[in-house]
């Protein structure tokens, strides 16, 4: 920290990054929006990990949460609705040294981007995947999202959402090669920070579903959860997300859960009576696609040219 080494010598050529280095434009989310908390937590992770800002890219789709890259001091890619993940994977494919973050929402990831969500989990490329889930379409003003609770009144379902909400956790846990699945709520900053940090440090796709407040369009959804911490069960384990007592005592329901236990994780995710918080599943050894897709990146143009001539030799008549 501060460029100081354990032996108290100072590395003067090393850059030290402060929160300001990770700040972009001024955040324009509504007052009280949970996205502010996520932005701050992510910036703190970057600062504490001293991630070089020019080596980070935050990729997003469309929606309120997808504005996040604009508020970061890293490179950013604010692309198309639902399509953050293919772009993020493409960035990683031939530039595995870049640090990639993805900011997406419940509509972006679980609805229009469903195909990419499933397949990106299977590719398991090393990135931090934050799904801001406020159970509503906010940017386009209150349409039902896949995770809207049944009965939630929206502009597309003024008499209340008609279907049971989609459970993104069970779907995520069911994907082959999934490697890191966590759930947090934006209004618990210490847990949010620790979870994002664990996802960042994990080699593979760190999937974090963030239950997020939208005070404008789905206030009931989050307020009810905020006011009733017994709706959650906090997952604790030595291999899980480290939380101190100040956090854990906020939750009356706590459960020791080994994150390597996929079957148990699936049961917890499927239990609609209590929402799990913390690390549901972690497999640090899952294969990462960029280890395959980056084959040959180190080849020089001379080597590529020689390779091409060898290919031509075989088809020359």
């Amino acid at each position: 920290m501060f460029g100081l080494k354990p032996d108290w010598s100072l590395e003067v050529f090393e850059r030290y990054f402060t929160m300001g280095d990770y700040a972009g434009g001024e955040a324009r989310w509504c007052p009280g929006c949970g996205d502010h908390a996520v932005l701050t937590a992510a910036q703190k992770v970057l600062r504490d990990e001293q991630q070089r800002p020019e080596m980070s890219v935050c990729v997003s789709g469309i929606g309120c949460s997808s504005r996040m890259p604009h508020y970061l001091g890293t490179y950013g890619f604010h692309g198309l609705h639902g399509r953050a993940l293919p772009v993020a994977c493409g960035i990683k494919s031939r530039r595995p040294e870049l640090d990639v973050w993805v900011a997406t929402g419940d509509g972006d990831c679980f609805s229009i981007g469903t195909a990419h969500w499933i397949h990106a989990l299977r590719y398991n490329m090393d990135m931090t995947l934050m799904v801001f889930d406020n159970a509503i379409y906010g940017l386009t003003k209150a349409q039902t999202s896949p995770t809207s609770p049944q009965g939630l009144k929206t502009n597309t379902h003024p008499f209340g959402a008609i279907l049971d909400p989609h459970n993104p956790l069970t779907v995520t846990l069911g994907v082959t090669n999934v490697s890191f699945v966590a759930q947090v709520a934006d209004w618990n900053p210490p847990l949010l920070y620790e979870t994002l940090k664990a996802a960042y440090r994990h080699k593979g796709t760190g999937f974090v579903r963030i239950i997020q407040r939208c005070p404008v369009y789905s206030d009931n959804f989050s307020k009810e959860l905020q006011q009733n911490p017994d709706r959650f069960v906090l997952l604790e384990h030595q291999q899980g997300i480290p939380v101190d007592k100040s956090v854990s005592r906020q939750f009356p329901n706590r459960l020791e859960h080994d994150p390597s236990d996929l079957g148990r994780a699936f049961q917890l995710a499927a239990d609609s009576s209590k929402m799990p918080l913390g690390l549901l599943y972690h497999n640090p050894d899952a294969q990462c696609y960029e280890d395959l897709s980056s084959q040959g990146v180190a080849m020089t143009p001379e080597q590529r040219l020689a390779g091409f001539n060898a290919v031509l030799d075989r088809i020359t008549v």
Partner: peptide
């Protein structure tokens, strides 16, 4: 996984 992702993946690589 699909044509859209194929283009998105290529654009990601090009951006990088």
């Amino acid at each position: 996984e699909d044509e859209i992702a194929a283009a998105g993946f290529a654009i990601g690589s090009s951006f990088a």
